[in-house]
Amino acid sequence: MFDRLEILQLARGLSAYSGARQSVLAENVANANTPGYRARDLPEFSEAYRTSTGMVDLRQTRAGHVSGEDQLSPLATPVFEDLQADPTGNTVSVEHELTRAADIRSDHNRALAVYSSSLDIIRAAIGRAR
C-alpha cells in the first residue's frame, strides 16, 4: 500500500536515478584519458520520470537498453554529451564530471531525506512516532 504513495515513489525514483547516474559518471571518469571516448549522461530526472495512467514510473526510451536483472527499475538511456573534444577525440572534462558528482550526491541525499521523513509521518499516523 505504501508503494502507491506518490511521494515515496518519487523519492525512490530519484534515488534510483542518482544511483544510475553515478554509475554513468564513473564510466566517464574512468575513461577520462581513453582516446575517442565520448562522455555520456542520463537525461534530466524530469524527463526520465513521468506520470502515466495515474501511476508513476520511469520511462525506458529504448527497449533492450536495460539488461533487466541488474537494474532496480528501468531508467532512461544514457545520451552522448555535446562537449568539446581534446586532440585525442575524448570529450570528458574531469572538472565537469566532479561538479556533476556534487549534484548527484545532493539529489540522492534529498531523495533519502524525503523518503525517511515521509516514513516518519506514516509512523506518526499509526501512532508510533519515534
Binding site: S18, A26, V29, E97, L98, A101, R105, H108, N109, S116
Partner: peptide, 19 residues
C-alpha cells in the same frame, strides 16, 4: 578523480543503508 567517484558511490550506498 576516480578515487573521489569511488568514495562518493560508497557514501551514497551507506546513506541508503542508514534508512
Amino acid at each position: 578523480a576516480n578515487l573521489r567517484v569511488f568514495d562518493q558511490a560508497r557514501q551514497m550506498s551507506r546513506n541508503l543503508f542508514e534508512l
